[in-house]
């Protein structure tokens, strides 16, 4: 059931990054700088990673984000997830959110695949009970079989990717945040994973997708935002927006 509820609301959000020449001033320097006549201005530079973002997303929105490298696409997703709190303005998220930003975060190489299922699930905010009931489904989907009880440092990168994908996508979320997720593994698994992603896209209330594959964006989304230097410079119909992006910004 797709509802008409507003799931994500962003009002006048700004995000500033600081760039340190000297990443963390040593205590000694911090004390010395108090006695210096003028502080080193060049030491820290601030830049606006996101400028005055206003966005309201309702159930049914399938939003694609396009933009050059460094335009702020992933940063915007990370702000919605809560990793980067906005310096000014507000971000409201109402609903169960599944970020597929970096799969396999928190994997512990020393632990077995099974133990990592629980650890990774826990980090996604799930309970032991919930993970217990999903455990078999995840193992089946990842097709790891008896390897599941081996420490994951012995896994091939394909096996690693399969496990991470299976844990991340096992539950249908309300809000799905996807940053360039491509399933890894053999052709058979990629095929299975693509179907799984399609199901997730259909079942989620809201999908936000970052991808450099503009064809994929046009196929999967019903609304596209064009980001440029931290600003949303255009917003609308996928085909038009992708054309705009390719003509005005890429060219």
């Amino acid at each position: 059931m797709i509802s008409d509820k507003v799931y994500i609301e962003i009002e006048n959000a700004w995000l500033k990054f600081r760039i340190y020449k000297n990443r963390s001033p040593a205590l000694k320097e911090a004390i010395l700088s108090r006695f210096k006549p003028k502080p080193d201005i060049a030491e820290i530079t601030e830049f606006d990673a996101l400028k005055n973002i206003n966005l309201s997303l309702r159930g049914g929105d399938r939003v694609g984000l396009v933009g050059l490298n460094g335009a702020g696409k992933s940063t915007l997703l990370k702000m919605i997830v809560g990793i980067y709190p906005p310096k000014y303005g507000n971000v409201h998220v109402r609903g169960k959110l599944t970020p597929l930003i970096e799969l396999g975060t928190g994997f512990d190489a020393e632990l077995s695949g099974r133990e990592n299922i629980f650890l990774n699930g826990a980090l996604l905010g799930r309970s032991y009970k919930q993970m217990k009931s999903l455990e078999q489904e995840i193992i089946d989907f990842s097709e790891l079989g008896e390897f599941i009880d081996l420490p994951i440092k012995y896994y091939s990168s394909g096996m690693h990717g399969r496990l991470a994908f299976s844990i991340g996508t096992i539950v249908d979320p309300e809000i799905l945040i996807v940053d360039e997720i491509f399933a890894t593994g053999d052709a058979h698994f990629v095929n299975k994973a693509t179907n799984r992603m399609k199901a997730l896209f259909t079942n989620s209330q809201i999908v936000m997708l970052v991808s450099h594959d503009t064809q994929k964006i046009v196929d999967l989304c019903n609304r596209v935002l064009v980001l440029h230097k931290g600003e949303v410079i255009n917003d609308g119909n996928p085909k038009e927006m992708v054309d705009f992006y390719l003509k005005e910004i890429v060219a």
């Binding site: 006048n12 400028k51 005055n52 966005l55 600003e231 949303v232 410079i233 917003d235």
Partner: peptide
């Protein structure tokens, strides 16, 4: 999808201002 025309005009209007000026 309804594009909020209002929003994008807002963005353009304030794009030249810094966060401090908006505050």
């Amino acid at each position: 999808m309804v594009l909020s025309q209002e929003n994008s005009s807002n963005i353009n209007a304030s794009a030249n201002l810094s966060a401090e000026e908006l505050i």
